[in-house]
Design a binder for these strands. Structure first.
Lengths: 163, 163
DNA sequence: TGAACTCGGACCAAATCGGTCCTGTTTCAA
DNA sequence: TTGAAACAGGACCGATTTGGTCCGAGTTCA
């Protein structure tokens, strides 16, 4: 249920890449595609999407390419991912237009709304600079609590976590 | 990226339903399907899955049906969902067998591993009794922080959250 | 003028998903 | 003992989604 689409993965990689080469000016699609081993055509679409989202600036013509339009530290994880995820919500109840197929008596909607808000809240503070230095990510942030938790082992490993 | 499968939704509804009728003995698939407006055939599969996961107990034969095998309070959200979600991880990197298609130099894996652990940690404490009383869910738990957050409005609403 | 780019629509094949159907097997009750 | 009621589960199907390709058009620089 947490999996992001392939395009989102490419987007995350691209932002990472461009952040590292920030001072090299622009980077072309072909260049980035080869460096990160991503199909050029689809990467082009991804970068277009990121540009539309305001995260990248494009330079057309020969010698052109893409560049981050902000420092990495000011780019949020959810911003990078959203253009390629049709919905960021947990159940179909609340996708949009309030169009819950289950009618007004859906017992799932209320708890799910809270759950959804809770999740987004967890991600709200996550910015892309965390992706550049995993070690820092591991030990320097509020996320360090996630590591070494007993419950974590239970949940990530195999079948029945809570018995 | 957070959306659960339809089967997971049905599973959550079923657990809710069975929890409310806990003292009525067993509930048949047909009964539950009609009450909650779910296709009977597929609900049957869902309940089978929940039984295999150890959450339900089945009574075969005439007058049979399903029953929670534990109090709701001891059933975790992730337990209910996992049988119907092939992977609970964020990127294909870490799905299983370490089979990352991108080779050893995948710059996504390390940060994503942390992110993934972080997410699961957030859900580890969430039990199904929270689904029975949305009001309690709203105000009585650690989740109340999610409501009314400014960042929440930004992230859930429209296009560009962080500008 | 032409090459190297970004842009973006059209299209396609494969996989996934939600759902149906159909055939057991087990159990209870008449 | 028999049959109905219920769980168990495999086979299948159609629609949607997804990852990916192809191609044409506009832009800019050398």
């Amino acid at each position: 249920m947490f999996k992001v689409s392939r395009k989102s993965e490419y987007a995350l990689i691209a932002i990472q890449h461009l952040a590292r080469r920030a001072r090299d000016g622009v980077t072309s699609v072909a260049e980035l595609a080869q460096a990160e081993n991503i199909p050029p055509d689809i990467l082009a679409k991804v970068l277009q999407g990121l540009k539309r989202a305001g995260l990248l600036t494009a330079a057309k013509g020969a010698g052109g390419g893409y560049r981050l339009s902000r420092p990495v530290k000011e780019i949020h994880f959810l911003e990078v991912v959203r253009p390629f995820e049709e919905q960021l919500c947990v159940v179909s109840c609340q996708n949009d237009h309030g169009g819950c197929e289950r009618g007004g008596d859906c017992t799932l909607r209320d708890p799910m709304t809270v759950l959804n808000a809770y999740m987004l809240r967890q991600f709200a503070d996550l910015t892309m600079d965390m992706f550049l230095s995993p070690h820092k990510l591991l030990h320097g942030t509020h996320m360090d609590v996630a590591i070494g938790e007993t419950s974590l082992g239970r949940l990530t490993s195999t079948a029945h976590p809570a018995d």
